[in-house]
Design a protein around this nucleic acid. Structure first.
Lengths: 148, 148
DNA sequence: GTAGACCTTGACCCTGACGTCAACGCCAGC
DNA sequence: GCTGGCGTTGACGTCAGGGTCAAGGTCTAC
């Protein structure tokens, strides 16, 4: 099949496939007219890549899995190199989750404290527009209509 | 104080301060010779920015806090806009942590399955080099040597 | 009066994973 | 024989948060 077809089947874009080829991750055979040609095997490799990408793998980190599949294994994680990547990513993941959990706790504490202070203290500087929604003042510099 | 001094006191770089100024986040007064001039207040604003950055805030998301401090409040989260950002980030954080937790579970299950298969099945294609990354048995995980 | 530290602006470079254009080749259908 | 849809390569843009020059102005100390 050609590049557009593969992209559709894998739910990605031709640009992405060319990018993968440029990275050497998913090289393509060429037809006589220069068009890239792919087969079902490439679709499998591509599925593997996308799956790992969804897991948050960088492109380079999917390479051992792709190589493993290409070497004839039925699954991309049948090779030691892939397992190493799994273990490393797992450790990274734990570190990130731990860090985010800490941040979450700190932020939530900050929020609780700030909400408490906001409800307890009637604003000591009641003429400051920033503490109120937007009754009349226009002290916020240039126009700032951008609300998300 | 001048830009170099502020950078030193805040543990950042002059490039970063100019970047913040270009973003309109931390504008500087100018001396007659054109040099940027900062005071203790700017140092406080900068501390606020760096703290939130450490929490994983994008630069733009620190703006309400900075504006709040600049409006005279003793803490950057004393204004409703800041609280909104807190709440939004907290929700984002929960979503990300949840997602990462799922990914962690899936990956760990994949790893367990793959390890099991690797140990159970003596490689059906023993002449494939990809299944033998290291010269001697290296099938045991928990390698701690190769860190960046 | 000059070295050297500090400041200025401007411009280009980096990462990751692509998006978007431009300009052109190939091919099928009418 | 022309239109339209595919394909090709190449180059540049994006986003964040800066890093790293380069060329030159300013200030302070000796």
């Amino acid at each position: 099949m050609r590049i557009g077809e593969l992209a559709r089947q894998a739910g990605t874009t031709t640009r992405t496939l060319r990018y993968y080829e440029a990275r050497g991750l998913l090289p393509a055979r060429r037809a006589e007219n220069g068009y890239r040609r792919y087969d079902e095997e490439d679709l499998r490799l591509l599925h593997q890549i996308r799956l790992l990408q969804d897991f948050g793998f960088e492109l380079e980190e999917t390479r051992p899995f792709v190589d493993c599949l290409r070497a004839g294994h039925s699954s991309g994680d049948a090779c030691p190199a892939s397992l190493d990547v799994y273990r490393r990513k797992l450790a990274e993941l734990d570190a990130v989750i731990g860090r985010l959990g800490q941040v979450r706790e700190q932020m939530s504490a900050q929020l609780a404290r700030a909400e408490l202070e906001a409800s307890a203290a009637t604003p000591p500087a009641p003429r400051c527009e920033l503490t109120q929604a937007a009754p009349k003042g226009h002290t916020r510099g240039a126009d700032d209509g951008a609300d998300e």
